[in-house]
Structures are given as structure tokens and as C-alpha cells.
Design a protein around this nucleic acid. Structure first.
Lengths: 190, 190
DNA sequence: CTAAAAAGCTAATGCCATTAGCCTCACCTG
DNA sequence: CAGGTGAGGCTAATGGCATTAGCTTTTTAG
């Protein structure tokens, strides 16, 4: 029966639900097929193999992050934009910890393209600080590393102490904004 | 033959070599057994299962990082210590990308304990900035997130652009140091 | 010297991904 | 309206891996 129900996108949808409701380890083709109401080998008509499904999943997730971060930045600029950007990014990871854990930062084209969308949003935001070209790239990398590090650790439950994580993140935002205002060649501080 | 050759530690050694020479995905009990010159089920005399082997591996790696970071900080303080700490941490990830990728930040006791060693080193370093208690915890979390984010992304090969990564990291160190000198309640900048 | 424990082995089970080859319905074509 | 084609589904089979059970051998403690 050439039903029109299933497609690569639909398979990714199912995989996302498994990810959200179970764990990254529960993401098997068997589980996806079971939930889609289909025999396992049927999935191969839509997806080359498990590795490709993971790639598609990563790309989808990265695009969702770019969407949310892009929306958060709309209509803001400079410090306010940085804060909104960082909060939106972290909030995505908090709302979907398993998705964030499943996100792979590989050179795989689809995910890389979505990653480029995200980086471009960051670069655009940095223009408010007068950063261009190389300087902006370095700063964007730092911003990305900072947010990713916190989000990854937090969604893994790696922060054990009782101190409030919101406060830690506020501090981090503050540190980033301070750093952006202090150009690299400013030399040592007083 | 109750040979004295194999032990849990030796199994972890073999697993580390597989990790270094192949990939995280190549780390199977079969591969470990093969390289150890033993049948697969024999490993269960030393390790409860694959999950425990991964935990032991994580703990080993985390301890190595703590060792290197602790050594880097020795005899330095304040800004110089922060820079040395951040460089040593990143250098470990660069030297052993697969180990860094295999590192899991779970609440698993052994790894958590090694992680505590590392955090204590960071906390001690922060004391040079007059930070204590809660403030130091928040700052330590930020430092950890910053370094982990950069190291994780770099060792995954996530930075695609041609700009030199050393320069990006220098900027990141600069940003962190600047942020540490600017207390949270300093208010907006000029 | 002996007995028990430590550490190894083979065999067997079950899950998973993947491949091969078959079947059937939906739809387009004439 | 008949028929053929292909997308999309299915069953069966294969091979890798983790894990368990139960046996055997070697140390080593007493």
C-alpha cells in the first residue's frame, strides 16, 4: 500500500518524540518503526540508515534552535540582544534536554548549514559592537562556546551544587557582555 | 588461568588505547577483549558491563584532566593562573579528542568525584579574585562551561571557518579574565 | 598438599541494523 | 476503463554485539 502517511520528515518527527519521551539511547530503528506502526525495514524506504536519521535529527534540532534564537533577537540590539540570544538558546536546551544531547556538531552538510544560520544570527548581533570580519568570527566562536558549554552541561545534569543555575547564567551573560565591551587589545586591566 | 595480567584498570587502559586509535564508536567489549587477547565474556570478571566500563573510562579521563589542570596552576595565581588553567584544559582536549568526546558528565560517583577535584582547583584559583562561597561557585560554573564548550566544539571539529582557533581561544581567555575583574553588581558599562 | 576462589573459556540467547526479494495498492496512460 | 509501473510496505535471513550460564583451569591461602 503506497500510503502517503510516512515520509523522511515524519520519521524524524517520530524520532523526536522518542527522544523527548525516552532517552537518546532509546532511539533505535525498532522503536521508531514500532511507534510509526510499521515494520523496521520499511523505514529504509525513507531514510538511508540509522546514521542518516541521526543526521536529519541533528539538522532539525539545529534549525529549531536557530529559529528560536533568531526570533529572540528580533527588534533588539547590543547588550539586550546578547542577553536574549543567550537566554533563548539555553531555554531550548532546558526545554528539550535529550534533543540537545543528541545534537551533533559534525561537518555533515545539513546540520552544518543549520549551524551556519545560527552563526549568522550571532554575527549580525555582534555588528552592534562594531565587530566585523575576523574579529566578529572570533567573538562569535566565543559566544557559541560559552552558551553551548553551559547548555550542554546543564542539560546533562552536570551541575551538582545547590546554587541557582539562573544566577550562574546571569553571571555568564554579564561576563560575556563585559568581555564584548573590552576589546582584545585593551591590555591588562587595572 | 588466573593470570595476574588483567584487571579493571588494565581493561580501562586497553579501552583508552582503542579510543585514541579508533573512535568512540569502536569502543566495544569485543574490541577490548580482542586487543587484550582474551574472550569477550572474560571481561565481565573485571567490569560489570559496558556501561560500567564507560563510567570507569570517564572517571579516568576526568582525573587526567584534573591532574594536568592542577599542575598547570601550580605556582601561578590570578590572571596568569586562569590563563594556564584554561590552556591546559583545552590542550588535553586537543591532544585526546576522542577521550574528550567520550567524557560523560553524569552524576555517576567516580566521575563526579574526579569532577569535584577539578572544580576545587578552579575554586582555589578564583580565591585570588576575592571570591568566596556562592560567588565563587557561580564563577567556577561559568569558567567550566566556557572551557568545556570551546573544548567540546573544537574536538568535535565544529569550528569550520579558517580563522585561527588559537586566536579565538586567546580572546575567550581575555573575556573571562575581564569578566572576573568586573563584579556582577557593577552595573552597566560606560 | 589441598581446597576454594579467581579468571578464563565455550555455548547460547536476544536485540539491533541492515539486506534481499516479494507483494500490493495508487495512480497515470492510453 | 484496462493495465502497467513504481512507491512503499512486508517477511525472512544475516551478522555483530552484549550479556548470561555453566564448566575448567590455575593460583594461592592455609
Amino acid at each position: 500500500m503506497a500510503r502517503t502517511t510516512l515520509s523522511a520528515d515524519a520519521v524524524v518527527d517520530v524520532a523526536l518524540r522518542i527522544l523527548d519521551e525516552d532517552s537518546p539511547a532509546a532511539l533505535t530503528l525498532s522503536a521508531v518503526a514500532g511507534r510509526a506502526g510499521v515494520a523496521t525495514p520499511s523505514l529504509y524506504k525513507h531514510v538511508r540508515n540509522l546514521a542518516e536519521l541521526r543526521d536529519l535529527l541533528s539538522a532539525r534540532i539545529m534549525n529549531e534552535i536557530a529559529d528560536q534564537v533568531g526570533e529572540a533577537v528580533l527588534g533588539r540590539s547590543a547588550d539586550e540582544a546578547i542577553g536574549a540570544l543567550m537566554s533563548a538558546w539555553r531555554n531550548y536546551a532546558l526545554a528539550h534536554p535529550n534533543r540537545y544531547a543528541a545534537l551533533v556538531h559534525s561537518p555533515e552538510p545539513r546540520t552544518a548549514e543549520a549551524g551556519t544560520r545560527l552563526i549568522n544570527i550571532v554575527l549580525a548581533t555582534l555588528r552592534a559592537y562594531g565587530m566585523e570580519d575576523s574579529a566578529a568570527i572570533h567573538a562569535a566562536r566565543c559566544l557559541r562556546a560559552v552558551v553551548h558549554g553551559f547548555a550542554a552541561l546543564e542539560s546533562e545534569g552536570a551541575f551538582g551544587l545547590p546554587e541557582k543555575l539562573d544566577e550562574s547564567y546571569d553571571l555568564l551573560i554579564h561576563m560575556v557582555i563585559t568581555g564584548l565591551h573590552s576589546p582584545r587589545d585593551a591590555g591588562p586591566l587595572p
